[in-house]
Design a protein around this nucleic acid. Structure first.
Lengths: 152, 152
DNA sequence: GGTTCATTGTGAGTATAGGTAACAATGAAC
DNA sequence: GTTCATTGTTACCTATACTCACAATGAACC
């Protein structure tokens, strides 16, 4: 009987998490949009931009798709938009004519700087209620989820 | 100098959280979609269905918008879809001809049951790497964020 | 050589989830 | 009774990501 109660409790907790995450994500998305709007960059574009900047060598489209955990086709649209704003450049790979490498432009690097501040502000908006220790705890837990994909 | 390092560390943590949440949310969304698809219900519709079921009295559209933290227009679309599948019913309010109240149908109640299991399975997929204590800690942290909206 | 097969990126089209703006119907306040 | 706020909705737009199909390329194999 007690084990059933405990199990029900665990189910309740597990079920609640989905709602909490969805709700939080919606707020995060809004906060990001608000802060990124003046830069003319959407959240997904910003993420791609950061991913490019974190790569030692200019990544291929397929690399980006993998790192962003997205289907390759989705990367095309994002790069299209960023290239239209001259923040990145599609560069042919000399070694293989199939691959396209993505490079940051000077404009891209510049907006990346402003973007970091915007992101920090957005996260700050959202995370204001948590102190430093709680944020550490939260990232630690999320890191476990991110690195160990479970049954997904 | 050390304080700058600590501040930089905090910024790094704060910034990381955004990425982690976005990534996790994408996975959650996929897991939900996978599990809900056989039921013919999308994640947002499922959430609305649950919200209706948690209300003592049949909620108004505006109530749902507020509880779901979306704009009223978004609720219309969701209810349209659910009503098309005969899972909910729009009922005129006798007290005011402006308001529309949303009631679960018998079919709605039935799918709600199957839906709970699907959601549990989806959450389980995602949260497999965490033990019960960690899940408790995570919900606790998220609850703080949900209830105290910070500067949003 | 050529044939087959896998990789890479993208066009076309779709779905989901949300948002704005305008509006008609209604209720409330003065 | 005129003005104002609330409620839901019509119409349209955006962001994000998906599938499917396909052309171009490279690699492997005979």
């Amino acid at each position: 009987m007690e084990s059933r109660t405990a199990a029900a409790q665990a189910d309740e907790t597990t079920g609640r998490l989905a709602d909490q995450l969805l709700r939080l994500n919606r707020r995060l998305h809004r906060a990001q949009r608000r802060h990124l709007e003046p830069l003319g960059v959407t959240p997904a574009q910003a993420r791609l931009l950061r991913t490019v900047s974190h790569s030692e060598t200019p990544p291929r489209m397929a690399d980006l798709a993998q790192r962003l955990d997205v289907v390759p086709r989705a990367v095309t649209t994002l790069v299209d938009a960023l290239e239209a704003h001259a923040l990145v450049r599609r560069v042919p790979d000399p070694a293989s004519r199939r691959v396209v490498r993505i490079e940051l432009t000077d404009d891209g690097r510049a907006t990346l700087q402003r973007l970091r501040q915007a992101r920090r502000a957005a996260a700050e908006d959202l995370l204001a209620p948590l102190d430093a220790a709680q944020r550490e705890a939260l990232t630690a837990l999320l890191a476990v989820l991110d690195t160990a994909p479970g049954r997904c």
